[in-house]
């Protein structure tokens, strides 16, 4: 539990690692805006292509990005289903009568059982799920023999498919962008960059240095508190608590028995830390120096040029 990474930083030494965090943050925001200006599926496909080229050129570990996208497939599947079910524009691609009879219900149950039995092969879970859906479709369309109890009409329009493709690719671009940012930037650098970017807010009374110190302390204390949480969980487990199983009522009691001591311990720690800082004569609000100062270099110029080119491109596509 000691080596927790908040964010998903992976050490490396390619182009993206040496860009100033401020440039990276601004560039990612601008590129996202640029992505949202795109309007047709061909444009977002082109955008996706550009994003892929940038990733390959920057030698970002692609496998890690794909791994990060994995929990997304449920989301993407939902998107597809909603778009296909509710979009009623364009020409009809598929129009078939779905019938429900005792026979087809039996077959559907068999298909579900087979699907769940095969679900232990985690590698092909997506493929299995898709073939399960296709199987259900053919069972209801062709294999329902009389007596037919009820039937409904499944209609898929081409715009529904195109729209879902559009939404999915746009989402992929945005997630790839933010993953590249968090993969190649240390959390400390990210905070430092944010602090620097928020410095103008001093006018309205937000002191970005205090803010940055608070964030660094909290990043430092995340592993410590996680350790405490572990200790409490082990202590409760040795008294017979089980956080994973049990009835709902037991679970509620167990979660509360974790939260209350955790809050108290955390706040006691903050008092101790404050005392330690005070006794070392720390003065809040005093200007502070750093070991590593942020500096711009030629890479930031290259990034800025590429970002502005992308933004101009998507504005031009929208206007023309």
């Amino acid at each position: 539990m000691k080596n927790v990474v908040i964010g998903q930083y992976i050490p490396g030494n390619s182009f993206f690692y040496h860009i100033d965090p401020r440039t990276k943050i601004i560039a990612v925001v601008i590129l996202m805006v640029a992505t949202f200006l795109l309007e047709t599926i061909w444009q977002v496909l082109a955008g996706f292509g550009i994003a892929l080229i940038l990733i390959v050129a920057g030698r970002v570990p692609i496998r890690k990005i794909i791994k990060g996208l994995k929990p997304l497939y449920i989301l993407l599947l939902f998107t597809l289903v909603f778009q296909v079910a509710f979009n009623r524009v364009g020409t009809i691609v598929l129009d078939s009568t779905m019938m429900i009879s005792p026979y087809s219900i039996l077959l559907m149950i068999v298909a579900t059982v087979i699907w769940r039995l095969l679900a232990s092969y985690k590698k092909f879970s997506l493929l299995l799920f898709i073939s399960y859906l296709i199987g259900l479709y053919f069972i209801m369309k062709d294999l329902a023999f009389s007596p037919i109890w009820t039937s409904w009409q499944l209609t898929i329009y081409d715009q529904g498919l195109i729209m879902s493709g559009f939404v999915i690719i746009r989402l992929l671009i945005i997630i790839t962008l933010s993953t590249v940012l968090t993969l190649t930037t240390k959390p400390t650098e990210l905070t430092q960059g944010l602090e620097s970017l928020l410095r103008p807010l001093k006018v309205i009374g937000l002191n970005s240095e205090d803010f940055a110190l608070i964030i660094s302390i909290s990043l430092r204390y995340i592993p410590t508190i996680l350790d405490e949480a572990n200790k409490i969980m082990n202590a409760q487990a040795s008294r017979g608590a089980d956080f994973a199983e049990g009835r709902l009522k037991d679970k509620v009691v167990q979660v509360i028995s974790l939260l209350v001591p955790m809050f108290i311990i955390a706040f006691k720690r903050s008092e101790e830390l404050a005392d330690a800082m005070e006794s070392r004569d720390f003065v809040p609000g005093k200007p502070r120096t750093r070991i590593h100062d942020l500096k711009f270099n030629y890479r930031d110029l290259v990034t800025a040029v590429i970002t502005v080119l992308c933004l101009t491109g998507s504005i031009l596509v929208k206007v023309l």
Binding site: I6, I217, S218, L219, I222, T224, I225, F263, R269, S270
Partner: peptide, 14 residues
């Protein structure tokens, strides 16, 4: 400041 920091850490840990 330390209390604010601890609240952030608690939230992230939970």
């Amino acid at each position: 400041m330390t209390k604010m920091a601890i609240v952030i850490a608690l939230y992230v840990v939970l």
